[in-house]
Amino acid sequence: MNYKTNIRPAWVVLLMLLGFAIIFILAKRNDTVSPVSQKTQQVEPESKTIFDILSFKNAPENENCLKCHGQSKYTFENNESGKMVNKRMYSELIVSRNDFYVSNHRQFKCTDCHSEDYGTFPHSGNLRMEAKATCIDCHGGDEKYAKFEFEKIDTAFMASVHSQKHSEDFTCWMCHNPHTYKINARSNENLKETIAYDNLICLNCHGDIKNYQLLTDKKKPNLIDKHDWLPNQASHFTSVRCIECHARNEDTLIVAHHVVPKAMAVRKCESCHAKNSILYASLYKYQVEENIQKSGLIKGLFFRETSTIGPDQNQTLNIISLCIFGLTLGIIFLHAIFRYKNSK
């Protein structure tokens, strides 16, 4: 054998590894999405959306309200002094036009939900006592909205820790602002965006001390510290919705609303990284079905039953592996028998 004319395989592998590293770095450049940039992706397109506001059905009428409530200050004439006065608008009374006109309720006029009496200024003090409609008030029992299963959501929410602990203070609006709410899980094909959008709803209170304190006198826990037991924390935060572990998942509801007390939250890796995992119940079940139709051969053929790491196996591959393994042992066994007989 002439060693000098041949190359040691280790050098070949080393070169391949180098090439692989370059491809890897290039590929990572294209698809790295940090939690921060996800948040920006989520928020910025809406705030930068350019559209003709007046093209919306009730926009001209809504402008009567938004000329004050659409900005951080409002101006009125003082009847006694006759002077124009600028006042700061309370932040919770501000409705962003950009957010409202991309929301699900964008075709509504303000007085569809609020009293007609708001048409006069200054508004009567009694109007503050106005009862606010909940989702069920409009969407309950309506065939048109049956697929959204508002009644099931309402039942799940009523059983949730949010409803149980905070009584009537905690309404749908705590998480779904009717002025800005936009359907997401069903319409967005970008899984990461859906996850970021849904988690932002939780973080609005659990990540913001000002909103958190509106509902409780408890000290707000540090979410990073509370989840320090979680391996690959950053990945979990960007790839899993809070509700996957903190709400009871039901097959029929795409978005679980039965948020459970923290002691009942999922803490076992196997619950997700295992056969029949809870993730199959909602979002991922929906996504996998969609993916088989959309993403073609590789995913459709090989990853029908797989989710992430662990035992969500492809049964066909299992059977093939078992056959190869059995065959190998069988051949070894026969070979050994023949050798033994031959040696006698």
Partner: peptide
């Protein structure tokens, strides 16, 4: 998993790596 490429030809990078 943070270093794993998110998607390879439409399939999850993590699934391919796992396979």
């Amino acid at each position: 998993p943070e270093i794993t490429v998110n998607s390879i030809m439409g399939a999850s990078g993590l699934d391919i790596t796992d396979l």
